[in-house]
Design a protein around this nucleic acid. Structure first.
Lengths: 302, 302
DNA sequence: GGGACGATGTAGTGCCACTAAATGATCGTT
DNA sequence: AACGATCATTTAGTGGCACTACATCGTCCC
């Protein structure tokens, strides 16, 4: 007893003859007759009976044809399930971000999505080395990752959208000798003690580029990834550091000075598997992330 | 997208690997893999993804697997529909009877089935010529028919159960000359005017047999099928008649005298298509008819 | 009765789900 | 680091089954 046989039985109940069913299903009457015989073989009571030269359903056949409607309904629903899954505007969308992007994007994203009928965000922070961001797209619909301006592009296993090109400024205590300058050069800062990120994190490469531009080797005093911790360490006189201009909340005891002569920028990119954009809700969140990026860039951190 | 592919998807969701699904469904992993590929071909977003060396469902796959459960549920219900149809003890059972059987059986049957959980009788009277009783089983689950003791048996296209072997007595007015006898012989009644049934109805053959036993030709004064009408005609002096002993309500102006020397009996049989006894409710009604027959035989008509 | 209509049986064909065996990928182990 | 074990997939080949074409049989209608 399979779907097709039930379909045939149902059509026979509604159309009232084998020939009519055959025409409706675009096959020969012989095929219908054979399938009915096969269906009958599995069932111990007659499902059909001759009425003159026509074939009609018995009571048992009508009972089974009724169940066949449920089967077809369930199958039709199954066939539409994927579309519905893709089309739901209020589905869950998981977004991962490294810390500073999270602190800047998540509040704005939560606010703009806090309405019925909008995607339901599932946010998570994931601070991983550069090369691990693409892998996170297995687990999250959208991953906010960062890389330096000149760094190799993301592997083409993932699709990407650049949300921000954010300058990295030199952070120092407000009473630092360099705090009087409008901008600083690699020569200005090459001999400073640096608070850098761990290996594999993008900020480190910029510090090395700055030192190289001044012909020195960088003095890496501390290795701290989290910018909020970095800021506190800088304020406490632990050294200077590179801090993103827009996504970090300003620290009252610090000043940020733009670097000249070295491209110190990081990209904040949205990484995702292309097929996930088939979901309306995912596309919506991507759009909102782009919009959020403009807000962040114009207004600075919240 | 067919049932099997959905089944495979569902199992993959629950078992978590192609090999496990293959073992569960008693096929090779290759078959599973191929079916998943076919299913995927019909759907624009990935349903599965590699997780290490295993294959697991994506969110879209899980959504579809959920719908697959509904499909399987509907199919399982369809597969049980026939059994349920057969097993329902309180289903409708249609019973047809010729007039006198109806007037005797129907009241008792209605009384014994008048309870929740018992078969719901759909009664009908059908007075047709002898050879038409089997045909009625197309339309009714059970048909009460009658035939004479020595008449040819019912065709074996129908199953039969004999409910009653009922004597046919000679009915006459209470003041008739023969009313003084305990029983009557063919010779006694051969010259009487008879009230007989129409051609094709069993009673007629008995009258002819009586006449033949006495070496006469019967004198058929009237042709009336319905025994209630016959009784009135006899009471009014229209002639004598054969009247069933148990299934006719006694008429106050008539007496019934047994015939000797001639087998004057009719069978009241239940005719039905064998497959209909697959239904519990039909078997129940057949049992109750047999029981009702015993009551009628012992107690006489109600 | 004869012709039209409807259902069914039979032989043959093409498709499809499956198996078997090889390949590729990943994991755990020593 | 290398190996075997495990898991998935691919390929070629096979058997079963749903279908078509054609013939036959029963039923209805004029």
């Amino acid at each position: 007893m399979d779907e097709r046989q039930l379909r045939i039985l149902r059509e026979l109940g509604e159309l009232g003859s084998v020939t009519a069913v055959a025409e409706a299903l675009l096959v020969t009457p012989s095929a219908i007759s054979q399938q009915l015989r096969l269906l009958q073989r599995a069932i111990p009571v007659p499902l059909t009976e001759r009425q003159g030269r026509r074939l009609v359903l018995t009571d048992a056949g009508q009972a089974l044809a009724g169940a066949a409607v449920e089967v077809e309904t369930a199958l039709a629903r199954a066939r539409h399930t994927v579309e519905e899954f893709l089309g739901r505007p209020d589905a869950q969308v998981s977004v991962a971000a490294f810390h500073s992007a999270g602190s800047a994007f998540f509040p704005l994203l939560l606010r703009v999505l806090a309405a019925p009928g909008r995607p339901v965000p599932r946010l998570a922070d994931e601070d991983v080395p550069q090369e691990d961001f693409p892998r996170l797209t297995r687990e999250y619909d959208i991953v906010l990752g960062h890389r330096l301006d000149h760094a190799p592009p993301w592997p083409d296993t993932v699709a990407t959208t650049t949300l921000l090109r954010e300058p990295l400024d030199v952070a120092m205590p407000v009473d630092h000798p360099l705090a009087a300058k409008r901008r600083v050069t690699p020569r200005d800062v090459a001999d400073q003690r640096w608070i850098a990120a761990h290996d594999g994190f993008p900020v480190l490469a910029v510090i090395e580029a700055i030192a190289a531009a001044a012909g020195r080797r960088p003095h890496l005093a501390h290795r701290i990834n989290e910018f909020a911790v970095v800021a506190e360490a800088v304020a406490a006189g632990g050294g200077i550091a590179l801090i993103p201009r827009w996504t970090m909340r300003p620290h009252p005891a610090l000043v940020l000075k733009p670097l000249s002569g070295v491209r110190a920028r990081r990209h904040i990119d949205a990484l995702y598997r292309p097929e996930r954009t088939a979901r309306t809700a995912v596309r919506t969140v991507l759009t909102e992330l782009r919009h959020t990026a403009r807000v962040i860039q114009n207004a600075g951190p919240p």
